[in-house]
């Protein structure tokens, strides 16, 4: 316990951070709401939202954004879980190496990583270069959902792996051993013990990856074509190419609300799953 007179400074210590974020975080968000409600005549209304939701094209883009994020989340989970399991089960230098493997990409810029995948997949890239060397027909893999998907899985994998690994690390190995001595084969021990106990990490990971991939735009901007439009890229274009602030703000709000709603649904499903397992 601190002496009483020192408590007076509590407010002074907290105020700069709290006020700073109120002004430069909450302030901008509120202004964004206001901008999205601006109408051409000068009044306020829902015109921008009606414009977005009333046009089949925008609705399609919105759905594409959700589906892309959902697919990326699914494949990151599929590929990430075994990796996380390996991290949790290894010790010493092997563990260090696995963590190095998964953390390194995290610290390389997404623009650079996207460029790296362009080199792998591009017309004169690694795969097509190899195909050409064997006189096989080349495939153009850039400029489509496949390239975007594989790059985003690469970008998101570390978040999923680290979330799941921290949950797996928390599971006492004796629990699995207890299951084995009680007659559970390893697959059953995984299904009834390890999987349900790692659900917390899975939920954290899927929430994180979903909200990160639904907001991603660099990869889609660099690798996409006019068919692979997603909401964040559209927000960027409305702002930079059309300078349509109110519409960009409204699309941004749609993105934000979508993230929050779907995250809420995921959380609810996660809770149900955990209860069901219990």
């Amino acid at each position: 316990m601190m002496p009483n007179r020192f408590r007076l400074s509590t407010l002074a210590f907290l105020a700069p951070a709290v006020i700073g974020l109120l002004v430069f975080f909450i302030g901008p968000l509120l202004l964004n709401v206001e901008v999205s409600l601006r109408e051409q005549g000068g009044g306020h209304g829902l015109a921008q939202y009606l414009r977005a939701l009333g046009d089949a094209y925008y609705v399609k883009v919105w759905l594409q954004t959700i589906v892309l994020a959902a697919c990326v989340t699914f494949f990151t989970l599929l590929f990430g879980y075994p990796f996380a399991f390996a991290i949790a089960r290894s010790r010493g230098p092997v563990k260090g190496f696995l963590i190095f493997l998964i953390v390194t990409p995290l610290l390389i810029n997404v623009v650079v990583r996207t460029f790296g995948w362009m080199v792998v997949l591009g017309r004169s890239g690694l795969i097509n270069g190899t195909l050409r060397a064997f006189d096989l027909p080349t495939i153009n893999m850039l400029g489509g959902w496949f390239a975007i998907g594989i790059t985003l899985v690469h970008v998101m994998l570390p978040f999923m792996v680290l979330s799941i690994a921290s949950a797996l690390e928390g599971i006492d190995q004796a629990l699995e051993q207890a299951a084995l001595t009680l007659g559970a084969k390893p697959a059953a021990a995984f299904r009834y013990i390890i999987w349900p106990l790692s659900l917390d990490g899975v939920i954290t990971g899927t929430l994180l990856v979903f909200s990160l991939s639904i907001g991603s735009f660099v990869t889609v901007m660099l690798m996409g074509n006019n068919r692979t439009m997603v909401l964040p890229v559209m927000v960027y274009q409305q702002l930079n190419l059309s300078s349509d602030w109110p519409f960009a703000a409204a699309l941004g709000m749609v993105l934000l609300v979508t993230v929050l709603v779907i995250s809420g649904i995921q959380l609810a499903i996660g809770r149900r799953l955990r209860r069901g397992q219990a």
Partner: peptide, 28 residues
């Protein structure tokens, strides 16, 4: 294999399955 041995083990710190209730633990 351990799952074929029919040996009951009481672990240090018990290793009870935290996501199962008492009856489910015993029934496992």
């Amino acid at each position: 294999q351990p799952w074929h041995r029919d040996i009951g083990v009481v672990f240090q710190n018990y290793a009870l399955f935290p996501h199962m209730n008492v009856a489910e633990n015993v029934a496992f």
